[in-house]
Design a protein around this nucleic acid. Structure first.
Lengths: 226, 226
DNA sequence: TCAAATTCGTATCAATCGATATACCTTGGG
DNA sequence: CCCAAGGTATATCGATTGATACGAATTTGA
């Protein structure tokens, strides 16, 4: 086969090893570049250079710039699921329909905590968050997949947990708004992290520092419905 | 004079009237374009077309694309001041050093409310918010002016009011973090407004709708220190 | 009204970017 | 060892972009 990009999303099926590794390097470089500079701001040469491959490799593996962009979106969806589906599933299992509001509050803390750790605590997620938020703003080619697979479900889940925390049967408009604002604050803190760290005089957001963020968010959740 | 861009930031001094109007049209189009698509994403032809001028007009009035970008940053600073300096001054006048925490809380509500109205309630501010937040992320040529004149003072003020609300003499790290998260949630709601409105089934963010946002933020402030 | 300053429009250049034609090297099954 | 499939590298094309040379049109003050 001449062009892996024409087949399924997964790495080359039969598979020489080397190709998958190259593919991964390109994807990694593209995530950073697109996240930092946006679709138009990132150039294919920049990405190829950062991945230490030559220009045609991008076409070879992803069919072109837009294909690479969409592959990045899929990768973000995949990584989001890898990190969040566990916590989410555990929460839903531990929260039967008739559960207590206090249990819902604890579940909300767990989910939001996991999300905050992902978005605020890891340096790599900076690019993903910027990528997703940018796509929510510009509504580019990857909008629908990111909205349907990441943003929408994320807000829905948090809105649902908030509403359960408040003792409601189903999310009210206020609960959904509260969920949007909560998710927004975490997302943005992820994006503007360099500036936020500079403002707080923090060298990084690891360890104890990240705990401060989590403590504040937990306090916000504790005060829900007060 | 051949090139107004070479002189002071303000509209042509001696001044033919028509030039100022053209200059304003270009600036308006550029704010929208840069806010929506970023520095590289927006093209000079696009901006010229939207402003119904020809291409060389951009060089004539702003010296080039980057000059126009910086002029946009200055314009944002200027508009931010026009809308916020009033409320901010009123708050500081009404809040002497020995004031009660409850007064500080009311002041915080007024300032954040004014900010929320500006960022969430007006459609034009969508571009400004996107512009500022993008610059905080990418740290482009307009970073320092926006950080020094808008972002930094804004967070500082809110942190200060939060700390006063909590009865502290000076902002602690927790207060500054809380301020960052509060400002982040408002900013992002401004950026992703189209998506947020779609999620909430709102046709727009005007009137009663905007009141809902304000009510939630007020409730968050009420719960501060609880 | 006239001349100077200002503003606007046409045409075009040079650089950059995404894409690709084409040939060469590498890998692995037989 | 061979050869087909997989992977890499060089060189270049066409389109777009920011910039600008140059002159025409308009506005202002005397």
């Amino acid at each position: 086969m001449l062009n892996p990009a024409a087949m399924s999303d997964e790495p080359t099926a039969g598979g020489y090893r080397k190709g998958d590794e190259t593919r991964r390097r390109i994807l990694e470089a593209a995530l950073t570049a697109f996240g930092t500079h946006g679709f138009k701001g990132a150039t294919t040469r920049q990405i190829a250079d950062a991945a230490t491959v030559n220009l045609p490799a991008l076409k070879y593996y992803f069919g072109g710039k837009e294909g690479l962009y969409l592959a990045c979106a899929d990768e973000i969806v995949s990584r989001y699921r890898d990190r969040m589906l566990g916590p989410i599933g555990a929460v839903q299992d531990a929260l039967p329909p008739g559960a207590d509001p206090s249990e819902a509050r604890a579940a909300l803390k767990r989910v939001v905590g996991a999300l905050a750790e992902l978005l605020v605590g890891t340096r790599e997620a900076e690019a993903w968050t910027a990528f997703v938020l940018r796509e929510m703003t510009e509504q580019g080619p990857a909008f629908s997949v990111l909205y349907d697979q990441v943003w929408g479900p994320g807000v829905d889940l948090i809105a649902h947990l908030i509403s359960r925390t408040l003792g409601e049967a189903a999310p009210t408009e206020a609960a959904r708004l509260e969920a949007l604002l909560l998710l927004s604050s975490i997302s943005t803190f992820g994006i503007v992290r360099p500036v936020a760290l500079r403002y707080l005089d923090w060298p990084d957001a690891a360890g104890q520092r990240y705990d401060s963020v989590r403590r504040i968010i937990d306090a916000q959740i504790d005060r829900l419905g007060a």
